[in-house]
Amino acid sequence: MSHQVESVVIPVAGLGTRMLPATKAIPKEMLTVVDKPLIQYVVEEAAAAGIKNIVLVTHASKNSIENHFDTSFELEAQLEKRVKRSLLAEVRSITPEGTNIISIRQSNALGLGHAILCAKPIIGDKPFAVLLPDVLIDKYQSDLTTDNLAGMKRRFEQTNISQVLVEEVDADDVENFGVVDVENTDLKAAEFSAIKALIEKPSKFDAPSNLAITGRYVLASSVWEALEFTLPSVNDEIQLTDALQLLLQSEPMEAYKIVGRSHDCGNKLGFLQANIEYSLLEPNLGKHLRSFLQTLSL
């Protein structure tokens, strides 16, 4: 069986309740950081890691995501007519060259584990990655072609051991994340360690470490069976963390320490922070925004 990771599953069917009212009519994945929607950053990350098949697990209300990656002949014709060549190039590069965007519906909101399981008919008996679209891996603090998802993919293809990206968080925040118990808690960036257990949202007194799962996974096809046998738990949903804990009973799994940092864009503060940081580093906006911020006296 091939260990090559050729596909990524991106679950986009969620309601985005933490970002209401903005997400009442707009998918949270289409909210923009600077000038690109979150989903585009995530697709670009997958393409940079060498993964070309993008499977969107979507919902009837999320057509704008599919439209974003489709060709807009009218828009392109207008940009061509107005000789806006740089904008035309940007629009045409929204979908990375050679990337295939495939959509499948999640009929019922039964949790992340269920959303991933919806992609099984497309992925088949092959390994795959999972990227959560509201987690942005900071492109300014790591190399998307070698680090994080790319590094996890490389490690999996060498070992056939499922990989989970982790990042240190404050002890008071562990209750908001899935947390891993690892053999080596003193992990350096880009290092990996065997996972002994995965715990969904433990209290800070029960957490085995402060290494939080960070929305990136590279998984062996054996996870399908684990997902099928996982019972609903928190919020009566099928949790991916529970499925991975079940899988861990029969095969090894590794934690991969993030290079750089992530941004949780699924909550308002994290989304604003990502926008400010990315804007300050944007060549055409950074110095103007910095000058503006220095005039504020709040």
Rank of each mutant, 00 (worst) to 15 (best):
A109Y: 12
L211S: 06
K52I: 04
K139N: 10
N210T: 15
Y41D: 12
N100L: 08
I51P: 00
K28S: 12
P37D: 03
L144R: 13
H68M: 07
L269N: 04
K287L: 15
I26F: 09
A77W: 07
R155Y: 11
Q273N: 11
T295A: 06
S250F: 13
Q249I: 08
I26L: 15
N275A: 09
L131R: 10
D134E: 14
L20H: 07
R261A: 15
V223P: 02
G124H: 11
L75R: 09
L244H: 02
L56P: 01
G113Q: 06
V218E: 00
D147H: 15
L112N: 01
P121T: 13
L165N: 02
E251G: 01
D143C: 10
L198H: 02
N210D: 08
L117V: 06
A150G: 01
Y140P: 01
F69E: 06
E168V: 06
S291K: 12
G14I: 00
L56I: 04
G113Y: 07
F177D: 00
N275L: 03
L231I: 15
L136T: 05
L272K: 09
L298E: 07
G215K: 02
D170Y: 07
F229K: 14
K257G: 00
I213H: 03
S142Y: 07
I161A: 04
M152T: 10
R18W: 11
I94M: 09
S193L: 10
R154Q: 15
F177E: 03
G260I: 14
P208Y: 02
D173C: 09
D138P: 05
H114Q: 11
T145R: 14
T58E: 06
D147V: 05
Y140L: 11
F69Q: 03
P21C: 02
H3I: 11
R85M: 06
E251C: 04
E29K: 03
L246Q: 09
A22M: 11
P252G: 08
L219S: 04
K28I: 01
Q106K: 13
K268R: 13
I54D: 04
E90C: 04
A212Y: 12
A13F: 12
L198I: 15
E225H: 13
V135K: 12
K120A: 14
D125P: 08
P232W: 00
T58V: 07
Q158V: 03
G14K: 01
L211I: 05
S221Q: 13
L75K: 14
I65Y: 13
P252C: 03
P133N: 14
K36W: 10
S103E: 08
L198N: 01
T159Y: 09
H59Q: 07
R92A: 13
S203C: 09
F192N: 08
S103F: 10
E175P: 01
S2G: 06
L280V: 10
S222Q: 10
F177P: 01
A194T: 12
G260R: 11
E45C: 09
F271M: 13
L272I: 14
T99K: 03
S64C: 07
S93A: 15
V179N: 01
A226Y: 03
K257N: 07
P11R: 04
W224N: 05
Q158R: 11
P208W: 03
T32G: 05
K81F: 15
S86W: 00
A171N: 06
